[in-house]
C-alpha cells in the first residue's frame, strides 16, 4: 500500500516489471504475431476469389458471395469464433475429422479470424480492382489478351497500389482482434496470459497493463512498416510496381517483404 502521486494507489511495480519482459509474455506476444500473420494472409488470399465473385455479373457466383459477406459482416466476430469452435462440434456431434478444429483452439481461432477477415478484404480488393481505369482493360483486350491475362498483368498490379495500404491496416486490426480468442480459453495469447496471472493473485491492473504494453509494441511495429509502405505506394508509384514478375513480388517491393 504505497501512495502514488498523492492519490491512493496500490500498484505492484515489482510484480509488473517481473512479468513485463518475461517469457511468460514474450511467447504469447509471438503467438499473437503468428496468428495475425496466418489469419490475415489467409483472409487476403480468400478475399481475391470472393472479390472476383462479387464483381461477377453471373448470379451463380455473385449471390453466394453476397450471402457470405452479409453473414460475416453482419454478426459479431466473437460469435463467429464460438460458432466454429464449439458450434460445429455440437452440431455434428464432434466427429474425428473435425478434431483439428474442435480440439485445437488455435486452428479454430485462425479459421474464424480468416473467414471473417476475408469478408472485409473482399470489399477492399473489389474497390481496388474497380478503381483501375476501364481504358486499361480496353487497351489490354485490344492487344489480344484474354480476360485472365488482363486481370493478372494489367488490373491486379495497378489495383495493388490501392489495395496494399488499407490491407496493411487490416494486419494492425487483426493483431488486436486476436484477443477475442480468449473466449475459447485454449489459446495462450496475451489477454489469456494476463487473465491467468490476475486470477491467481488478483493483480488485475498490472497484468492487463503488461498485456496492453505488448499490444502497443506489436501495433507500433506494424504501424512503422505501414507508414513506409504508404510512402512508397503514395509518392513513387512507379517504384512500387516496377517489378516484372508476378504480383506477389510487386507486393514485396512495397516494403512488406521486409517484415
Amino acid at each position: 500500500m504505497t501512495p502514488l502521486v498523492g492519490i491512493y494507489a496500490d500498484f505492484d511495480s515489482h510484480f509488473f516489471f517481473q512479468i513485463l519482459f518475461s517469457t511468460a509474455f514474450i511467447w504469447p506476444a509471438i503467438l499473437v504475431i503468428e496468428i495475425t500473420l496466418v489469419s490475415q494472409t489467409a483472409g487476403i488470399i480468400l478475399g481475391f476469389p470472393l472479390a472476383l465473385g462479387r464483381m461477377s455479373r453471373n448470379p451463380l457466383f455473385k449471390l453466394p458471395v453476397d450471402l457470405y459477406l452479409w453473414v460475416f459482416r453482419g454478426t459479431p466476430l466473437i460469435l463467429q469464433i464460438l460458432f466454429i469452435y464449439d458450434g460445429t462440434a455440437e452440431l455434428f456431434n464432434n466427429p474425428p475429422f473435425l478434431y483439428p478444429i474442435t480440439r485445437n483452439a488455435v486452428v479454430a481461432g485462425c479459421l474464424a479470424l480468416a473467414l471473417n477477415e476475408a469478408a472485409y478484404m473482399t470489399e477492399i480488393i473489389r474497390a481496388g480492382l474497380q478503381a483501375v481505369d476501364p481504358g486499361q482493360v480496353d487497351a489490354a483486350k485490344a492487344l489480344g489478351m484474354t480476360r485472365w491475362q488482363v486481370m493478372r498483368r494489367i488490373v491486379i498490379p495497378q489495383a495493388m497500389r490501392i489495395i496494399v495500404p488499407p490491407t496493411f491496416n487490416e494486419y494492425i486490426n487483426m493483431s488486436k482482434n486476436t484477443s477475442l480468442l480468449v473466449i475459447m480459453g485454449g489459446v495462450a495469447e496475451l489477454l489469456y496470459t494476463a487473465q491467468a496471472f490476475y486470477s491467481a493473485n488478483f493483480r488485475v491492473f498490472e497484468a492487463l497493463g503488461v498485456a496492453a504494453i505488448w499490444y502497443l509494441i506489436i501495433t507500433s511495429f506494424l504501424t512503422r512498416i505501414q507508414s513506409s509502405i504508404e510512402k512508397r505506394f503514395g509518392e513513387r508509384q512507379e517504384i512500387a510496381v516496377a517489378g516484372r514478375s508476378n504480383f506477389l513480388r510487386r507486393l514485396m517491393i512495397g516494403g512488406a517483404g521486409r517484415t
Partner: peptide
C-alpha cells in the same frame, strides 16, 4: 479466348492513350 485471338490482328489506338502506367 477466341475473341482474344481474333483481336490480335486488329490494332487499336485510343483517345486517352491508355498506356500501362506500371
Amino acid at each position: 479466348r477466341k475473341v482474344a485471338r481474333q483481336r490480335q490482328e486488329i490494332g487499336m489506338v485510343f483517345q486517352r492513350f491508355n498506356l500501362f502506367p506500371h
